[in-house]
Amino acid sequence: MSHPHKVYGLGAEFDSAGALLAAAEKIRDQGFSRWDVHTPFPIHGMDKAMGLGKSWLSAGVFVGGFLGLITGICLVAIPSFVLYPMIVHGKPYDWRTFPAFFPIIFELAVLFAALTAVFGMFALNQLPRFHHPVFNWDRFKRFSDDGFLLVIEARDDKFSESRTKALLEQIGGRNVTLIQD
């Protein structure tokens, strides 16, 4: 609040998914690093156009699933073999009965992996985050309808209010607006 007129960045609108993709490639080639596009749906090829690699969420989910597997094994094996070995219907109760534990172990592995996928995605995307400077842009709401938006942050080393604005207009951006922080 101490800097009421601090600039967050510059936003520009593009006509279509294709136009935004072409613009993103140009911004990438100009060497900008702190910028993003906001679209109603994920655009095919945008990760490459922005120079982003693969999401490594999958690695986290593997770890989560593996922890679920270990938890499942401990949860069924420790009580059944150590804490309270139970004889039901006179059936065996030693390690050979292990296949009877597979369903629970499997379910826990899936549960932990799914929880990691969702909450890991939230963490990587920094969600929930209800306030963000881009919401200050009055045309930002169009991203969830049919807007194809590109925002370059002022924190970027290459950012300059006048030159970046000219660049955005030159590559086809419309309604290029200064976004307040």
């Binding site: 993103a24 993003d36 596009v37 906001h38 679209t39 109603p40 994920p42 655009i43 945008m46 990760d47 922005m50 982003l52 693969k54 999401s55 969420l57 999958s58 996928a117 969702v118 890991g120 995605m121 939230f122 990587l124 995307n125 969600l127 929930p128 985050r129 209800f130 306030h131 963000h132 881009v134 919401f135 991203f143 969830s144």
Partner: peptide, 17 residues
């Protein structure tokens, strides 16, 4: 909506999730 901004950096992880 958790403050969803539809940014491509978000979509990337979202699509993977």
């Amino acid at each position: 909506a958790l403050g969803w901004r539809g940014s491509n950096k978000q979509w990337r992880h979202y699509e993977m999730a």
